[in-house]
Simulated assay, not measured.
Amino acid sequence: MEPASIEVIVAAHTAFNERRLDELELFMHEDVDLFLPLSLGLRPTGEKGLAALRATLANALAVAPDLRIEFERAEVVGDLVILACLAAATGTDGVRYQWPLRVIVAAEDRRITRYIVRAPHADLAADAHAFPARRGAAKPQ
């Protein structure tokens, strides 16, 4: 992955945190593969495309309108960027909660093609290989 891809990922997260959602979509490939927890509105088996992204954002922001995702560190591994993040939102009880996330991101031509959110204890190496590149890779059997 070229370093510019990290810039795209940072810009996409900044757009999300600032609720510039139309701009966020410009950083996403039209067939973006999403693998997000059920709590964010998608099946863990994944959904694809901008319509799935819009639905996920609507679900997440309806429950946690002040949700933010901040980077702690990023590591480039082959064609993937693995992010250590801290998410934060106010719960329905009025308490501000924070929790760690790991995010696996692939980008191509300055657009995000895969976005996989995992728990911090997940086996990220196994996950990265379980979700093959969007183009030209065989699906796992």
Rank of each mutant, 00 (worst) to 15 (best):
R135I: 12
L86S: 14
T56M: 15
G136F: 10
R20K: 07
R111P: 10
T92Q: 13
T92N: 11
A130I: 02
F16T: 00
H29F: 03
A137M: 14
E30G: 09
L24M: 13
F131I: 13
F16N: 00
E23Y: 03
A89Q: 10
V63S: 13
T92K: 12
A87R: 07
G41P: 04
V10Q: 11
Y97Q: 12
E75H: 14
A130W: 03
V81F: 09
A4E: 14
L61S: 00
G136P: 04
H129V: 13
A138R: 15
F27R: 07
Q141A: 15
T14V: 04
I69L: 05
P65A: 09
A84Q: 13
V117E: 12
A107L: 10
M1N: 06
L86G: 09
V105D: 01
V10Y: 07
I6N: 10
H129K: 14
N17D: 01
E75F: 13
E23D: 08
S39K: 08
I104T: 07
E72Q: 11
L42C: 06
P120F: 01
A11N: 07
I69F: 03
R102D: 00
G78L: 05
N59W: 03
V81Y: 10
G94S: 08
R135N: 14
R68G: 01
A60Q: 06
S5E: 12
G46A: 06
P65Q: 09
A12P: 00
V117C: 09
H29N: 14
D109N: 15
S5I: 07
M1Q: 08
P140I: 09
D123W: 00
T92G: 10
A11Q: 06
P140H: 09
V32N: 08
L24S: 02
V8W: 04
F27S: 09
C85A: 14
R134T: 13
L57C: 04
G46M: 04
L40G: 05
E25T: 07
T113M: 11
A15H: 04
V10M: 06
V76H: 12
D127P: 00
L53D: 06
E47F: 02
G94E: 03
A51F: 02
V32M: 07
R54W: 03
G46D: 03
A133P: 01
L57A: 06
T56F: 08
D123G: 01
F35E: 02
A87G: 12
L101V: 05
A119F: 00
I104R: 08
T113N: 12
H13T: 01
L50W: 02
G41H: 07
L86M: 14
G78C: 07
I104F: 07
H29G: 09
R110A: 15
A64M: 06
E7D: 15
C85K: 11
I116E: 06
F131G: 00
P100H: 03
I104E: 06
L26T: 15
R43M: 11
P44D: 00
L53R: 12
A128W: 00
L101M: 08
E47C: 08
F27D: 03
L38V: 13
K139T: 13
A52C: 05
A64F: 05
D31N: 13
A125L: 08
E70S: 03
A133D: 13
P120V: 01
T56I: 00
Y97F: 12
D123A: 03
V95G: 11
F27M: 06
